[in-house]
Design a protein around this nucleic acid. Structure first.
Lengths: 358, 358
DNA sequence: GTGTTCTATGACACCGATGTCATGACATCG
DNA sequence: CGATGTCATGACATCGGTGTCATAGAACAC
């Protein structure tokens, strides 16, 4: 590969002048500049980031570590939307003239030290630490030696983090359901004690409270288990229980669950949305758009979170954090309304007739 | 950050000796070695890959460019499984003590030159060029200056590539259907003239031929359009047409389409799999496992393709390609059989009774 | 005892950028 | 006309590793 010396020789100038042409940090005669540019083009010159890094002590690299945390089991399908996080972060990072170095542990936590070692060898300027679902983490001390932003997770040390606004999004979804005339809103939750579960149930309740509707506790049932292999073992029973409470719409903890509920409802001869509306969470387009009817869902805004996290990290690195910038940032997204939710005349109760059919 | 000089000073040796301890390329006295190791640990020393790269002229970086090609429109959900490609490639590349540098264009082709420039600045040793669906590409000349392996695509110049075995996988799926007693197998295809469409239809036909079954052309209908926004506009009609040919199973071009077909069949009151079996393609676990009933599907083996491509690229880089290694490699995967396909008694035709029901 | 080989180590240059400082050619000012 | 300043450029050192070569001492052969 051509070096700056080759270019200098070809253009009949010193390497330093070539450097000046590239970086524009000092005046260069127009004729000289042209000669240098021609030489660069002729030799197909590309500057070496290794040499630059050495001289400048700045690598221009940002490390992202994903799929990082679970050691007990592999998440088969978590990880998929991470590509959106990567895209969102990369866009922002490219604009700052830096490069994103992605290390995916593939869910094997034991690989993390190796990946971090690689990051350190490359002198990454900061790290984006991505969890596969909204949760609390405790960072290894070895991660604390450079700027870091947590994505989709938080810790007890108030490390800067970017989180989805689970409470707000679920609120928006349930509030939207109420505005569409629904009063009896079933909710099949995530596994208990998950951060997202608690937050979303809180949003569900706040939406009821703000609209002056009392929550029938029979309408709220745990719909999933933490184990991925038996994740939906209790869904059948949970669905039976909420149906007993005679809802007009079933909110599912995520789109996967909603997809299953579609099947289960149809097994029971319940048509969607005529006899029962359904809503999801995550807005996985792959699912929500292609289910029939299209699934209304609260978006998990991964791309925006990636962008926001990258932005925050870059500001920390450059020391230009905003004065009152909070450590913890919530990212919101609008609800995607599709055909699975039917608008009801608030004064009409179709419940009794529907129940007769099934 | 501590440098090799700091370590040398702390251990009372020369930098070169520290280097020897790290690389083990020359004998070092046991006592000296221990002293150096202690100094490295005490100073939390991590060697600088930039300095190494400069001296050795080897970056240890492999570039992967994804989501790279489409310029006309953004693929909303293509790109998702790419994470598997990344994981598969990364595993192999890590084992070779190299680092994967992923650049995702987010479907914006105009960003590719920038990304390639970054790759060149980092002196990547080779490039994995990933297409978002199986297709022919023509590479920009600027990509030809270093080893490259195409993934999920091929070109006219016989550039080394790794492809999914569409023909073989569709053959295996259809052959499996026939072995399960199906004789009238409908096929809703991808958009016409797509590489994968032609290959899969070929597999479908070969499976019939090998089993001595004539293909009823009414059973084969185009099920999707190239436009993503109107991708499935003709699915309704296509489904109607194949149903007229009285199939016992409907093969869909991909899992998304199968998900829609689930909905459409149920609208028609056709139960799956009792009245109609359904099969997909891609084996997107997120869909196939959570549809109800579970969807039988031919796997698109992204992780394996990523690993194979990385392996091939590393062998090209190291000059250890196998003697008879073909430029083009096909990656196969077994069919994932789930409940959406019902085994039939080959001698019983339930068609007439089923048609009456609907 | 001298020559040869091996072990263990260090001095020094080099990879390719760029920061610092110096210098020469002009232009401007008093 | 000499002092000062600006413009354009180059010499040189430096970043942190490692390849090359030199060297001192120990071990071994004859």
């Amino acid at each position: 590969m051509a070096t700056i010396y080759d270019v200098a020789k070809a253009a009949g100038v010193s390497p330093k002048t070539v450097s000046r042409v590239m970086n524009g940090d000092a005046p260069v005669n127009q004729a000289t500049r042209e000669a240098v540019k021609q030489a660069m083009a002729a030799l197909n010159y590309v500057p070496s980031s290794a040499a630059r890094t050495m001289r400048s002590q700045r690598s221009g690299l940002i490390g992202m570590i994903t799929g990082a945390i679970s050691s007990t089991h592999h998440f088969e399908d978590a990880g998929l939307p991470e590509i959106y996080l990567v895209q969102g972060a990369q866009r922002v990072i490219d604009q700052s003239n830096r490069t994103l170095l992605v290390a995916d542990s593939g869910g094997q936590a034991e690989r993390i030290p190796t990946l971090l070692q690689t990051f350190r060898e490359h002198r990454v300027e900061g790290i984006l630490y991505v969890a596969e679902y909204h949760r609390e983490v405790s960072l290894p001390a070895s991660l604390r030696d450079r700027p870091i932003v947590l994505v989709n997770c938080f810790d007890a040390q108030e490390t800067p983090c970017v989180l989805p606004d689970d409470e707000g999004a679920q609120y928006a979804l349930v509030d939207g359901l109420i505005r569409r005339g629904h009063q009896r809103i079933a909710y099949l939750t995530l596994p208990e004690h998950y951060v997202a579960c608690d937050l979303r149930v809180a949003g569900y309740r706040r939406a009821h409270r703000d609209n002056g509707i009392a929550v029938d506790e029979g309408l709220v049932q745990v719909g999933a288990l933490p184990s991925t292999t038996h994740e939906f073992d209790l869904l059948w029973d949970a669905l039976d229980r909420v149906l007993k409470a005679e809802p007009t719409v079933i909110c599912c903890a995520n789109d996967k669950m909603a997809m299953r509920v579609y099947g289960l409802l149809r097994d029971r001869g319940v048509s969607i949305p005529q006899q029962m509306s359904v809503a999801g969470y995550d807005d996985y387009r792959m699912i929500a758009e292609h289910l029939h009817p299209g699934l209304s869902s609260a978006e998990l805004p991964y791309a925006a979170m990636g962008a926001r996290a990258a932005d925050k990290l870059l500001r920390i690195i450059s020391g230009t954090t905003k004065p009152n910038e909070p450590n913890r940032e919530l990212v919101s997204a609008p609800v995607a309304w599709r055909e699975s939710v039917q608008t009801r005349d608030a004064n009409v109760t179709q419940l009794s007739s529907r129940r007769k059919e099934t």
